[in-house]
Amino acid sequence: MSERFKYVEDREMFSAARVKALEALLIEKGIISSEAVDKVIGYFETDMGPFNGAKVVARAWVDPEYKARLLKDTPAAVAEMNFPRGMTGVEGEEMKAVENTSDVHNLIVCTLCSCYPWPLLGLPPYWFKDPSFRARSVREPRAVLKEFGLELDDSVEVRVWDSSAQIRYFVLPERPAGTEGFTEEQLAALLTPEAMQGAAKVKVG
């Protein structure tokens, strides 16, 4: 059998050593510093992540005027929030919110790879990068969503957005029933990256 059909032994240990070696060489050669990698990792834990998108959605749920502004000019509406600087940073230079309603369900995909709105949602999860998801979501989005546990009524129109140029999309999901008295903070806590990419509904409890 060809080598092409085999993985190296100790696949993860090998990759870990390979990457550590790469980082060490880059430090030794004065390309990066020994802190650069940890700082980047930390940035996505504290400053950029799905916690930002959750706040934007929660605000849109409680403030119809904000929602209208968000759908019309997403970057301007995001800039109104009290976020760390960087919301128009890498992979957020152009972002666009699309709204789910009782008649329309949106699903985001990047069939060419993994474009994703980093400042608001952080980094893409594995399902989003899965070649099967990228192959099937454009051709049979209802079947894919059903596998994810989201069954759509036949009357609902599905819109699939393929992020192939400058825009990074995210979904403004429907506010779930039973959240009438919730604060913005409580609402934000209900949101998941999956809901903000159209792969799940927002659930209470």
Binding site: G122, P125, Y126, W127, S132, E147
Partner: peptide, 17 residues
């Protein structure tokens, strides 16, 4: 990849980054 037939295994709904 978009639309490619044959990748019909259930998608692994792995939410890890």
């Amino acid at each position: 990849l978009g639309g490619l037939e044959g990748l019909n295994d259930p998608i692994d709904f792995d939410t890890r980054v």
